[in-house]
Amino acid sequence: MLVFFGRRLLVALLVTLTVLTVSFALTRLSGDLAIAIAGPQATEQDIIIIRKAYGLDRPVVVQFVDWVVSAASGDLGRSYIYHEPVARLIKDRLPVTLTLGLTGLLIAMATAIPIGILAAMREGTLFDRGIMMIAVIGQAMPSFWLGLLLIITFGLKLGWLPISGVDEWDGYVLPGIVLAFAAIPAMMRLTRSGMVDALASDYIRTARAKGLSRASIVLKHALRNAAMPVVAVAAVQLGFMLSGSVVIESVFALHGVGYLGWESISKNDFPVVQAVVLFLAVVYIFLTLMADLLNAFLDPRLRTS
């Protein structure tokens, strides 16, 4: 178990380091940053000044090491636009993105898991096939378009919910639904297939032979075993949701981390872009690591060996 955890941690660190390198390389190799920062009207002189001011005249390797060392100590650089530490910008925007991501995950799980279980219990029936068909249809829905549709319908026509901003809690409802929508099909399929396998297993036959109640058989004996892959996917989906929040946050004008990233890209604010990419990657790596640990905790075969 400790060895497993150690190996897993080592891989996570290596992945982080690689992503660090990639996100740095991304902004350096694809063009001259100074020209991009200076903007189209800048003169040759301006560009040289900018290059000096931002330390872009140093060798790339020096810049990289400098960035890695400061990033490791929590200093992600300063924004060119806001003239504020990037770490503080992210910290300020994080609650919005996190609330949005968790809302989405909650809605997705509350929908996908019960429906997945019901579909598995009625495997092969019209209900089951209908649900799977709806999942395929849902997957084809472009999320930003769905967001706009919801804004028109619930925000404008019916006036039930705010269409942008999160001054109140209900501002998270529509974006949360859109975010959940993308995760529901995968989660539902997985819950269903896990439950179908579990319900057909020998230990469920034993549970029935023991005369246990239907609730205990389905919810205690089958679900516990089907839950493991779902937990892993839920963590991965939360990661995707946080990075997918770029689109949703811009549709609903929510000022979260994703919006910050998009804004910085359009304004060539590269320290922020680098940092947001790195931040979202680290969150994802952390979530998958947590999912592995949770699975190890749920599965006694992993826990005790």
């Binding site: 297993s201 020998d202 230990y203 034993t206 032979a209 005369g211 239907r214």
Partner: peptide, 23 residues
């Protein structure tokens, strides 16, 4: 189900898979 496991019990061929691995 009230009778099963109480008055009538059953054991199976596959002891490796007949117990729930999670409990």
């Amino acid at each position: 189900s009230r009778l099963r496991g109480d008055k009538i019990a059953m054991i199976f061929q596959e002891p490796m898979t007949s117990l729930n691995p999670a409990y």
